[in-house]
Amino acid sequence: MAEEAKGGGLEFHPMDQFLVKPLFGGDAVHWYTVTNVTLWMAIAVLAIAALMVLGTSGRAIVPNRVQSIAELFYGFVYKMVEDVTGKDGVKYFPYIMTLFVFIFFSNFLGLIPMSFTTTSHIAVTAVLAIAVFLTVTILGFVKNGAGFLSLFWVSAAPLALRPILAVIEIISYFVRPVSHSIRLAGNMMAGHAVLKVFAGFAAIAAISPVSVLAVVAIYGLEVLVSAIQAYVFTILTCVYLKDALHPHH
């Protein structure tokens, strides 16, 4: 976590926790290499399956704790989709639910000491964001045809301003996957880096009590951020889906 530098001080490497490393020999990473990223993604998937499939297999009228948590996830996301997109968007609930629980579990598993936060990597969040972007764009044209282009034409604005606003709307639309992915990855990476820096200061006896208190406070903040970022990614997906289903301003 913190090492003695040659000059006698402390040397921190807070970004080392984000390095992609093969699990079985060698340093080269190929598309087929099993790495710490794929390991923790698999753990997230297994945890989700354990909660949503095994935990609800009994379908008890009086649910146990695991079933109650699964139903809480289900109800929360279903209400979000229904409120933002309307009844038309409910049919896409399974996809949005999958996004939410995957990001939620990945974020929280990353808070376990010595684990790996997969959502801190732009390669992971970019795939999720691009998948959302392509899905809603294709859906928009399938559902509305050329009428989907009305999303970029602000009919309520004065006629002279509409072309300018259309350019702005088009640019903002194609920037969506960038902001969608960087927001999640950036928040997770920044929080974990700060957490490791303060943990490194715990090696200095004079400030170790302050450092420990700071770690506890930041860890509590990271718990909150992990939940909020899963919510933000999901609700933005719902907003984009709403635009695809109802593009008219």
Rank of each mutant, 00 (worst) to 15 (best):
P22T: 01
Q67H: 05
A131V: 08
Y74T: 08
L221E: 05
G145T: 03
I96W: 00
R65W: 14
M15K: 13
G7C: 08
K87E: 12
S106D: 06
A193T: 15
R65M: 15
F93N: 03
H192Y: 10
A47K: 12
F174T: 04
F141Q: 05
L151A: 13
V29N: 04
L19G: 00
M189T: 08
A214T: 08
I138M: 14
N144A: 08
S57E: 07
V81H: 03
L128G: 06
S181H: 02
P22V: 02
L111F: 01
H246W: 01
K87G: 06
F116G: 08
S106V: 00
I48A: 08
A50E: 05
L134I: 13
V127S: 09
V81S: 00
P158Y: 02
A227C: 00
F108E: 01
G147Y: 00
V81M: 04
G26C: 05
V77P: 11
A203N: 07
D88C: 06
G75S: 02
A185I: 02
D83M: 12
E71I: 06
T38C: 09
P94E: 06
G26M: 02
V154N: 15
H30V: 11
I103Y: 04
I122L: 13
F233W: 10
A193G: 12
F201E: 01
A160V: 14
F76G: 00
F198R: 11
M80P: 10
I228F: 05
F102Q: 09
S181A: 13
A214M: 06
V239C: 11
D88M: 09
T118D: 07
Q229G: 03
S211M: 02
L111S: 00
C238G: 04
V175D: 13
A131H: 07
G147N: 12
R65F: 15
I61F: 12
K91C: 03
A157H: 00
I168V: 15
L245A: 01
N36A: 01
P94Q: 04
I182T: 14
N64L: 05
V142C: 14
K21C: 02
S57F: 13
S57W: 14
A160T: 07
L245H: 10
N64A: 01
G25A: 12
H246F: 06
L224A: 07
A50C: 13
H246Q: 06
S57C: 08
L241F: 01
L161P: 07
M97S: 14
L195E: 07
A129D: 02
N64P: 14
